[in-house]
Design a protein around this nucleic acid. Structure first.
Lengths: 195, 195, 195, 195
DNA sequence: GATGAATGAGAGTTCATTCAT
DNA sequence: TATGAATGAACTCTCATTCAT
């Protein structure tokens, strides 16, 4: 019996259901029972594919981390002037955060709930991402395009705070498109860095 | 039997213990048993003073919201130029967030865990706070001191994202004092708003 | 409301029910649900008094170990000739094993199922008991009353193997009383040790 | 594809893995998953050769029972004096128990976990073995070589208790060889039976 | 004002077994 | 002969809350 391509595989259905529920109710408030019911499978099936509830969370993290890291690498590697590269990186991260708002919401509310070793791995990956971003800021400061009196890591934390907060207020279908919010955010960041 | 003045009252001890534990482990991961053990009282005593675990959370919120609202009102009501008032408000909220980092961490990680009606009340109070802040931005835009091409609510969300994120990276005893971080953050905000 | 003295306390009822069920079905095959049902209480009540299913087992062990240790110390401390003391110790341990056959059966079938640290504690206590018994054998060997060509620890293991095996065949109400079995066993041991 | 002769057959590998794991952790604590992993096969393969986890246990029993029964028959059928035959039978059972310590450990800890009908079969076989041994004791008592004031079945249970207990203390590579322990045990038994 | 025994529902996880392929 | 996805029931344990004292 060949499965219709339209019907998602069991692990994919589980991941989708978990993502939605975790974003809506939080990780701790979502029971494995709810997840498997939403995915239309049994608990046993879930534990066949994922070692634990924690693993579902890790997978969701992995997905979004990979995506954003790829985007950043691509933009950073172009030949454009550094101010331009930073602007595009900033705008991209806003857009992709909004486009994956569920994943990001979960990410921000639940990293600290992961088992220690997984939590460490995820944080390490996240740190690398921030460091790549910081390198752009420092490059611009050395080139004299950005003010040099603000520590680059403070700038990065300042900006990513704003980005992480998007899930708290942005509603799709609202006044502004993801692209517009990205432009506003990138403007505010770049303007703040003018020498 | 007269209690030594040095020993805090039972409700205060409970609130202190709950604050610390909620910040460390999250609301859902902290059991009532742990709280009462840390406070050195029994469960019965806790339920005598607080109707539920939820009530402890609401109380913690109330405390920090009241504090920050007061500060903002005070600064906003001065006669200084609007740019100066916004700078001081921004700096103040950073400093007081850092000084009450446990409360703020809990606030940000756990609002969505409150029972609906309490959650609504807290959010409403928070919204009023943000609106007061936004009014400052709009005043500056009308006065021509801030660029007018950025919606004021976007600016507010942009900045409070940064502030809320402080708990994720700031460590007391680190390189920068609360005051210094406040200045950097206020600078970045104000510079971003230059026309 | 004063409880009738006849009605056993909750922890005692739990211990009794657990003892019976563990002996009948084995530790792993007995569910907490079965235990609390047999004791007429809820699971919550059980976990109020015992930290885990393991704790029930440890408690049962403690009871029987204490009992047998006391008996041995009492006999060993008398002034009788060593052969007489060993005979009585041997007989006593048979009788008390038969009288607490459920506890002993559990003991023998389930020590290795205890959590490592508890298992270690129980084994250590057991070893002390065996060493006390061995000291009697060695005393008799030095006094020339027992043959000296058999290592005392081998003798002890030989005999306690027999004792531990009682649960596998002895049925109360059978042909022989506990006392009679004790005499036969003590005879076989002592005769085996004749020089 | 021809398998190398050195590589054991799948059922044999399963039996070996199960024996080791059952002896180490107990039957109930060992999952089918662990067994197949240790044997390097899949669950499906196991259920192809064995109807259930229980069947593995029965097979292990069968193996050791057959072995020991054969040995006893051989010794009992010789022409030597009865005391000599009993001595050799006793010594043999000690040696073969030590040489198959894993199987015997499992046997003793897990017979009661078998499904009723299989358990009955195994016990019956075991009983026949004990009866053959008892017959030797009785023969010696009738011949006046052994004291007659001890019921032969008590003697048999006394001795097999000791033998069964070997797994609880004997460690290969220790002070005494299997042969030496066998001699000591046989000595203690025979000396105990002197008239 | 304060205790702590007791509840009862539900949590995450494990597991022997089945069956379409 | 062999696979491995999937089942479904049972498992131990946790917890916020209640209430007689």
């Amino acid at each position: 019996m060949v499965r219709p391509a339209a019907e998602d595989s069991v692990p994919r259905r589980l991941l989708a259901a978990a993502t939605k529920l975790f974003a809506q109710q939080g990780y701790d408030r979502t029971s494995v029972q709810e997840i498997v019911a939403a995915a239309g499978v049994t608990k046993g099936a879930m534990y066949h594919y994922f070692g634990s509830k924690d693993d579902l969370l890790s997978e969701i993290y992995g997905r979004v981390l990979r995506l954003q890291t790829e985007q950043l690498e691509k933009v950073a590697a172009t030949e454009a002037p550094v101010a331009e590269r930073l602007r595009r990186a900033a705008q991209d991260v806003v857009v992709s955060t909004i486009e994956n708002l569920d994943d990001m919401t979960i990410f921000l509310q639940s990293v600290h709930l992961l088992a220690p070793e997984k939590s460490r791995a995820v944080r390490a990956e996240r740190r690398r991402y921030h460091e790549r971003f910081r390198a752009l800021v420092e490059e611009g400061q050395r080139a004299g395009e950005f003010r040099a009196d603000k520590p680059a890591d403070i700038v990065v934390d300042f900006f990513f705070g704003s980005v992480h907060h998007l899930g708290a207020w942005y509603r799709s279908g609202g006044r502004l498109s993801a692209r517009e919010v990205g432009e506003h955010y990138a403007d505010l960041l770049l303007a703040g860095l003018r020498p």
